[in-house]
Design a protein around this nucleic acid. Structure first.
Lengths: 152, 152
DNA sequence: AAACCAGTTGACACAAATTACCATCTGCAC
DNA sequence: GTGCAGATGGTAATTTGTGTCAACTGGTTT
């Protein structure tokens, strides 16, 4: 990760800390560490992956805390839970509209850097009564590793 | 559900039974009942919702069996696991490309009947090495009930 | 229609993912 | 520094999903 990325990330962290303060969320060690981890990782980690990241630097960290902080961040709009066919929650600190690729076999998720997949517009209301806020496109496929390990 | 829908559904069931036979999957009571339930429900049920449906008509049905049959059906291409931000598997007997709305609060999923959201094309390969097969658009919003119960 | 058998199921144990509860602790406003 | 609302850690409980194996059954053969 280059110097430029680091600058961008520290700006993001600054911005997210401001949001926390504005919402009255205390900036605890645990929350700050989770914020950093979420911003530095671009692989849309699961709760457990984040817990593993943090338990080294924060001794005595509880898994429950990680679950709770993630829920808090989602409610505050700092991170989003992303859609995947896997029955496991994954999180993304990039809350702007972008799309994902998900591996059908191992479940890993990556950003789709290609642009040009934006819908010109979408209806804010839906016949069934749903009020629509946003959308995300999830591509499905096989990652490099799973293409080669041709187990079934 | 009108008479026409019933006709369409029984045709679907016929077609799916044929696929089972072609693949050497025995048409057990449990599988047939699950097939019916999956086709009749358009709300993309979870495993437990399907188990609740079936345990009334099939006494002694095991939860394990429902999990196993769903996995079998997914492998046979009869149903698909759908993407949702909720950490729970949901299934859809409609395997043709279509899109979904997911409620941010209660997690329920509905079909998006509106058309015109299809991507003209998408790359089969992705810089990260992913091989892409398909895509699905998941809209996020609030269902009618959750709009009104304005808990937070 | 009785027998056979590969494939399927039910029951239970187990593992993984998530939530509930509560006593203790800490960020931060004063 | 003090006080306290809010946050955390630890444990238990719940929900979701998988592994194992003996018993059963759909579909074919005789």
């Amino acid at each position: 990760m280059g110097k430029n990325d680091q600058t961008i990330n520290s700006e993001k962290i600054q911005r997210m800390e401001d949001i926390c303060r504005a919402r009255g969320l205390s900036l605890t060690h645990q929350r700050l560490a989770l914020l950093h981890s979420l911003i530095e990782r671009t692989d849309h980690p699961t709760t457990d992956q984040l817990f593993d990241d943090l338990k080294e630097s924060i001794q005595g960290l509880s898994r429950t805390t990680v679950y709770r902080i993630l829920e808090t961040f989602v409610r505050a709009g700092l991170v989003v839970k992303i859609s995947s066919p896997q029955a496991k929650a994954r999180f993304d600190a990039n809350t702007s509209r972008h799309h994902h690729v998900s591996c059908l076999q191992c479940g890993q998720v990556a950003d789709l850097e290609v642009s040009g997949f934006d819908l010109p517009s979408f209806p804010k209301n839906h016949p069934s009564g749903f009020q629509l806020y946003d959308y995300a496109i999830t591509f499905s496929g096989l990652c490099l590793r799973c293409q080669h390990s041709s187990n079934q």
